[in-house]
Structures are given as structure tokens and as C-alpha cells.
Design a protein around this nucleic acid. Structure first.
Lengths: 214, 214
DNA sequence: GTAGATACATACATGTACGTATGTATGCTA
DNA sequence: TAGCATACATACGTACATGTATGTATCTAC
């Protein structure tokens, strides 16, 4: 539908209620992401989330159905940011190994913001249990595994990646080692990026170091 | 005094109260470790822990002061098992790289039991917060970091490990990549061991090909 | 301007898990 | 056997976080 009544006047735009809503939602999402990455889901106190965003729990329950809905929204939000900042740019690389390494380095940079730990924290918390949050996480993660597995297979076909364990297992190790290394080194640039690249290069058994390769 | 109390003969002695206590404590610790690795600390329900061990919460509160005390005991328990099964055997390796790779492979095997995820789960949960559990975790983890950093420095001195980022950063990446890869591949032998070795070899930038043997 | 909707704050009800107090049976000691 | 201590179960009180209901001010439409 074409915007019917929305007057985007160039003269003066005082904050409309739609803008206020979007702004509040964004602030709450960011606060919730920070809280989730710090405390996890179970230990997260919604009152603290709201207070950190400058609101009360009333605003939170006005925007989100319940705690679970909030967590799912945070997951989608982080996932979308990741795709825009890491996933899509890596597609510009011409060869599989280049794309894989771009994913690793981009993820390391992306995780310098505390927000990124959300995924790992929630996955640890919901890996075993049958929960909506866990399912959403697994769905998002599974996409990454498949993408990486395809890249590994492509790299093996063209000879840039040597043979080894099944591509799916390699992909899982790729993501696990990447996230683990990055979390342990978060906030310590530039070593986080270098060592994340080293870890995934080791998983793939390829030799790509920044300085002159042979 | 000629009773059977002090007699530790080969015959089957009936369980003393000290033995009962030790057995109960062990069962509760194992159940708590499983619960912690599955649910984390906040979501852990003590009633479930006790029930899984065949007791009620009464037994738990008889052996442990409170929930925090139980978690600390689990950490010490896991740490001690890790040292016995992984840390000490690796010391038999003659050279630094051999010891580092033995640590990686041993850790992968150790983590095939769900128990091992406790450390990672609790670290994610308490990394940011100032809590007794987090401090105990960090203390245990810091020992591993120092040991690995010393090995990295030794390997660089004798030329078996090329130069790179500071040894402490390398050690953190070593542990992070190792744990991340192992968690993602837990229960999928033999790829967990191979890929964990690959990941840490990449972090160290050493070439240790272990393929071929099964 | 009035009426309704929206964006939030405040107050209340409920459930859940923790910690403690108490009860009971069995093992140790004299 | 008496008497106490230990190992555990059961019952109770309490705190805390969630979810809901209600209240209030601002924005929008007629």
C-alpha cells in the first residue's frame, strides 16, 4: 500500500508515535541483547532490561508479548545485523577459501560488540532442552553450517581445501572454533581477528597468513 | 574393639555411614554436573538434581551449604577429573608441541562426557558478573592459560612454534577454539578429536598431521 | 474541542524455587 | 539396650520475577 496519510513534511517533523515506538523498540532490543549476552536468558531480569533502556517493564510488555517473544526478537535482530555486516560482504569473495576466511575475520570484528555473544550464550543455555528459543537458534545456526559445508565441498572440488572429515563436521568445527576463539579474545583487537583466522584455517587445513604466502 | 569396624578385608563389608555419605555426595555431584551442563546455573532446579541422583533436596542440603556451594564443588570435581585424565598425562610428552596437542586431543576425548560442558556453560553465564562461581571458574581457567602460554613460549624458543601474537593471547585462543570446536562436535567421535587438533594446530601455526592412523 | 487510540507507568496476583525447620529411621558408641 | 549422631525426607516460610490489570498523559482523527 502506498503511504496514505503519512505526511513526511520537510518543514518540521516532531516525533510521531510510530517513530517513538520504533525508537523505544530499538532501545529495548539493544538493552535486551546486552543483558542476554551478559546474563543469559534465565538470569535476565526484565526490569533491568527496561531500566537500562530508560523505561519500565510496562513499555517492554507493550512492545513484546512476553520474555520469550523478546528473546526471539533479539535473535532475529542480531541475525539480521550479522547477515548485513558479515554474511553478505563475504559473498563478494571470488573463491571458497576467501569467502570462508572473510566469514571468520568478519565474525571476529562483529563480535567485538558485546551483542554478538548473545548467540553463543543462548545456544549454551538451550542446546539440550526443547524450547522455542533453542529452536530459533538452531534454525539460524543450521543455515550457517550448511553454507560453510557447501563452501568446504566447493573448495575440496577445486583443490584449495584438502580432504578430511565430512564437510558438515568440518563446518561445525569451523563455527565452534571460531566462536570459541572470538569469545575468549573479545575486545582484544587486533589479535582476535588474526587468531580467529588461524583457528579456522587450521580446521580447514589451508595456509593463509596475512604475510607473504609462498 | 574386636569388631569388624577397622577391618578392611577383601570380604564385602557393609556400607559404613562415611561410605554412604561419600557415595551420596558423588551421585549428587555427578547429577549436578549433568544438570549444570544442560541447564546452566540459573535454570538448574535442585529438586531435579536430587531426583536424578535418587534423593530429595534434603540430602542435597545436608551435603552442601546451598546452591552456590554445590556449583563450586562441581567445578572442583570436574577440574580434578580433568587434571587426572588430561592435564597430567599430557605432561609425559617430551616437547612443547607434543604436550599442547596431547592437551587438545585429551580434552576432546574428555568432553565426550556431557560433564565437561559444565565449564563452558558456567563461564558463559558468569563471565561478566562478579560472582563466586565466576571467580572460581576464572581461577581454574587462568591456570590453563598460563600453562599453555608457557608451552607456547617454550615452543617458540626452540623453533617448533613460529612467532605471532603474544603468548597469552595465543593461549586464550587455543582454549577458546578448542572448547568451541569440541562442544559443537561433542558425541561425534572420531571427528571431534581430529578437528580439535586441527583447530589448535591452526592457532599455533604448526603442522602436525595425525591422519592415517585410526 | 471531543473521543478514541497509543505509549508508557504503576499496582497487583501468581507461580516457582530457594533456604530452613522439623520429623524419622538407621548406624555408631557406651 | 540406651543414647546420641548421622543421613535423609517432609513441610513450611519467603523472596523474587513474571505476567496482567489498571491508570495516566500524549497523540491522532473527526
Amino acid at each position: 500500500m502506498s503511504g496514505p496519510t503519512a505526511q513526511t513534511s520537510t518543514r518540521r517533523r516532531r516525533p510521531s508515535q510510530a517513530e517513538r515506538r520504533a525508537r523505544s523498540r530499538g532501545a529495548l532490543l539493544e538493552s535486551a541483547a546486552r543483558g542476554l549476552s551478559r546474563c543469559g536468558y534465565g538470569n535476565l531480569r526484565l526490569e533491568e532490561v527496561a531500566r537500562d533502556a530508560g523505561y519500565t517493564r510496562g513499555a517492554l510488555y507493550h512492545q513484546f508479548k512476553d520474555k520469550e517473544d523478546l528473546a526471539l526478537a533479539v535473535i532475529d535482530w542480531v541475525d539480521e545485523n550479522w547477515r548485513r555486516e558479515v554474511g553478505d560482504p563475504a559473498k563478494l569473495e571470488p573463491d571458497p577459501v576467501g569467502e570462508l576466511m572473510a566469514l571468520a575475520r568478519g565474525h571476529a570484528v562483529f563480535c567485538r560488540r558485546d551483542v554478538a555473544r548473545v548467540v553463543m550464550a543462548l545456544r549454551m543455555e538451550f542446546s539440550g532442552r526443547d524450547h522455542a528459543v533453542g529452536r530459533r537458534l538452531q534454525r539460524a545456526s543450521e543455515g550457517g553450517v550448511k553454507r560453510i559445508a557447501r563452501l568446504v565441498e566447493a573448495g575440496r572440488r577445486d583443490g584449495s581445501i584438502p580432504p578430511g572429515p565430512p564437510a558438515t563436521a568440518v563446518a561445525r568445527a569451523f563455527l565452534g572454533a571460531l566462536e570459541g576463539a572470538v569469545i575468549e579474545l573479545a575486545g582484544r583487537p587486533p589479535h582476535d581477528e588474526v587468531l580467529a583466522a588461524r583457528a579456522v584455517a587450521g580446521v580447514l587445513r589451508v595456509d593463509v597468513e596475512g604475510s607473504g604466502a609462498r
